[in-house]
Amino acid sequence: MNGWLTGGAIAIALGASYLIDSYGYDRGHAEATAAEQAKLHALKEEHSDLRDQAAQDYQLAFKQQVTRANAAEERLMATLVELETLEEEISERIPDVTTVYRTAPQAAPVAIPHCVFTRGWLRDYNAALGATARVPASRTGTASAAAEEAAEPAPGSDAELLESGVSPADILAHARDYGAWARGNLAQLNGLLDLHNTPPEE
């Protein structure tokens, strides 16, 4: 009888131990799983916050870039309008300042003497500007056909001393157009530099 009781007690003890161990395992596993899930949730929240912040930073930087681009475009447009106005004013004055002159402040205007620009002068003028030897007809219509069709003479040749047909009005019209082109390019370059060098707004 005592052996049966002892064996029963052992079985009960073993069963209780198993139950305790099983409960401890399940509890430990549940706690570990909960801890991992909490870490995963915190990591997901952190990543979500980082994504949200990155999106906000990108939107702010984009808005600042658009603002700078718009400001640069406005400055460029204003400069181009100024250049166009100046071109028109010079065009209107070209006939006056290239056809007559005064020998003294109170003297009556007289015709400007014929001014000769040789074909060699025209060749070197164009070479200095990096342009071709052809002279485009000016908007004032004063460029002669001879000037437009003149071939570039070789240095030292007799042809370089022939008259090019270019008039002071042609030279002034060319300077007007070339100056507008150069300043327009400069305005565009400055706009690009301003766009890329302006620090982001706080």
Score class of each variant (00 low, 15 high):
93 R>K: 15
125 Y>T: 01
57 D>I: 10
18 Y>W: 06
142 T>L: 11
68 R>A: 09
154 A>M: 06
192 L>I: 11
37 Q>T: 11
25 Y>P: 04
56 Q>C: 04
128 A>W: 05
158 D>I: 15
88 E>Q: 12
42 A>Y: 15
145 A>Y: 03
194 D>F: 13
26 D>L: 12
22 S>Q: 07
38 A>Q: 05
100 V>T: 14
121 W>C: 03
104 A>T: 05
129 L>C: 06
180 A>Y: 06
157 S>V: 03
37 Q>F: 08
171 I>C: 07
125 Y>W: 12
190 N>Q: 14
33 T>Q: 12
52 D>L: 13
32 A>E: 13
35 A>G: 11
144 S>T: 04
36 E>W: 11
124 D>H: 08
70 N>K: 06
65 Q>C: 00
152 E>P: 08
76 L>G: 04
129 L>H: 13
202 E>N: 10
68 R>W: 08
188 Q>I: 10
177 D>Q: 08
170 D>Q: 00
75 R>Y: 11
67 T>R: 09
128 A>L: 10
108 A>W: 07
6 T>M: 14
197 N>L: 12
85 T>V: 09
6 T>C: 14
69 A>H: 12
145 A>N: 01
115 C>R: 14
81 V>W: 12
7 G>W: 15
60 L>W: 11
38 A>H: 06
50 L>W: 04
142 T>C: 10
49 D>V: 12
37 Q>E: 02
164 S>N: 01
185 N>I: 15
153 P>S: 03
89 E>K: 11
124 D>W: 04
42 A>E: 11
176 R>P: 04
192 L>Y: 15
77 M>F: 13
74 E>F: 00
9 A>R: 12
132 T>F: 06
125 Y>R: 04
153 P>I: 00
58 Y>A: 08
34 A>M: 01
149 E>F: 02
97 V>M: 02
91 S>N: 10
60 L>Q: 09
121 W>S: 06
111 A>I: 09
146 A>V: 05
114 H>Q: 15
177 D>G: 10
125 Y>A: 05
86 L>T: 09
152 E>C: 02
192 L>A: 11
173 A>L: 06
168 P>K: 07
102 R>P: 04
26 D>H: 08
157 S>I: 07
155 P>S: 00
52 D>Q: 15
56 Q>P: 08
46 E>G: 02
186 L>R: 08
200 P>D: 11
180 A>E: 05
76 L>Y: 00
115 C>M: 15
179 G>M: 03
79 T>E: 14
